[in-house]
Each structure stands twice: as C-alpha cells, then as structure tokens.
Design a protein around this nucleic acid. Structure first.
Length: 237
DNA sequence: CGCCAGGCCGTGT
DNA sequence: ACACGGCATGGC
C-alpha cells in the first residue's frame, strides 16, 4: 500500500474514533478568517478569548473591523499574542476586501480558487496554511490545509521525509483522496484537517511520545516504543 | 521556571 | 532555495 492509501486509512480511523468535527469552529465566515489569523502559532483557547473580546465589542463584522482603531484592535486580540503584526494583518485584509470585493466575503468567494489563493498569499501575515484555511472554511473551496501536526503525522509514520515542505505534504494529502467523489472533497478536506488537529493536540508533541495515540499502531517500530526525539531517517519511497 | 501553541517574515548563508 | 531567530501571550 502506497503513502496516499496509508494516509487515507489513518484518516478513516480518526473519523471512526473522533466522529464528525464540523470544522471550522466559528459562527460566520468572517469569524473563520479572523480565527485563521489569530491561531498562528497560538493555542486555540487564547484565540477564543480574543474572539470573545471582539464579539463583546461588536467588532466581529466587516464594518466593525473597518472602523476600529488599530491600537484598540491590538488590545482586544492581546490574548492571542503577536498582537502588533496580527492587528495590522487583519486591517490589511479588511482593506483588501473593501478595495477589490466591495467589502464582501461573498464576492471574494466567487473568485477562482487559484486567483484567490494568490491574492491571499500576497497579503501580510498570510502564508500557505492561513490561505488554504480561508479558502476551505471561509470561501468554500476544496483546499487542503497543511499544519505542523500533519507534518508530524506524515513524517513520523514514514510517509514522507522529515525535510518535506508544505507543497509536498499537501500533494500527498490531496492524493489520499483521489479515489473519492470530487463533490465530497470539500467536506473530506475539512474533516481531515479537523481530526488531524484533534489527534495532533493530544498526541503529537514536538518530541514524539505517541503514547496512547490511536495511530501509534502503524508507527515504524523505531518510533512506536521510543520516547527519544529521533525521527525515521530512511522513509519508504 | 522552561517549553509549547492549529505560522509568518526578514535576514543570513 | 533553505535554515534560523523574532514575534507576544497564556497554560501547564
């Protein structure tokens, strides 16, 4: 069985264990976008605090974020950290939306996936993961989101070399769903990222422990009974 | 205390 | 093209 099939098998098991996640955890598409910015290298619990602050001040709207002073925005998102960069980035996104899409996420979602991704990546504070998360969960495109946890899962299971970059991991993850109906890709991608984060938060620390991980069954022996920080050095091609 | 968290960016090789 | 440190805060 090749790497894509093995990754798909891991996905199926995670779905069996954790059930439907219904990600992204947000009430509106704008909240998805804001959450995507705020969660960068930040615990989700901290993001929730910031979202609550914005909500309490009635700023979880385009108009609200357009009108708020940047220094006040910083204070409200303080719990998420990196507040100076993140406040500037959120402001830049609102300006981008205003200038090119009449301040409408709906209109942005009518843009092609390729053009939208390129334009998102050109914004400050938006890298490949944030762009793909917005494409998938806010704009409705079948974009595969790659995060640190997916990198850890794929490399530790020997599906990819540890040196793999975003695009390579993404190719593998997309290939894992190549036998599924195209019309179901968006839902699968959404649930895939969700269960990866779920298992990642619980079991995929920087130093591989893999204790109690439901996926530990398929780990290469070198990793399955090891608490050292070594990683498989000769992955299967 | 020290490490970590659902990344991204500027700088140096 | 990479590797690396900085960015800010809160939880454990």
């Amino acid at each position: 069985m090749g790497a894509p099939e093995r990754l798909h098998a891991l996905y199926e098991r995670l779905v069996d264990i954790y059930g439907p996640q219904r990600w992204w955890p947000a009430k509106t598409s704008l909240e998805v976008v804001i959450g995507a910015y705020l969660t960068q290298n930040t615990a989700w619990r901290s993001v929730e605090r910031s979202i609550e602050n914005l909500e309490a001040h009635g700023l979880l709207t385009i108009e609200g974020l357009r009108g708020v002073a940047e220094d006040e925005l910083r204070e409200l998102i303080r719990p998420s950290g990196f507040m100076i960069r993140k406040a500037a980035a959120i402001k830049a996104f609102i300006s981008f939306l205003d200038e090119l899409y009449d301040g409408s996420l709906e209109k942005l979602s009518e843009e092609s996936s390729e053009v939208a991704r390129e334009r998102l990546l050109a914004l400050p504070g938006v890298g490949p993961e944030t762009a793909d998360a917005i494409l998938l969960y806010a704009l409705g495109h079948p974009a595969m989101v790659v995060d640190e946890y997916l990198k850890r899962v794929t490399t530790r299971h020997g599906l990819l070399p540890p040196s793999s970059k975003y695009a390579e991991i993404q190719r593998l993850a997309v290939a894992a769903f190549e036998n599924d109906q195209p019309s179901t890709l968006r839902l699968h991608f959404g649930e895939f990222h969700a269960v990866i984060v779920e298992v990642g938060k619980r079991h995929c620390g920087r130093i591989p422990r893999c204790e109690g991980c439901p996926l530990a069954f398929d780990l290469p022996k070198r990793l399955s009974n090891s608490t050292r920080n070594s990683v498989a050095s000769t992955p299967t091609a």
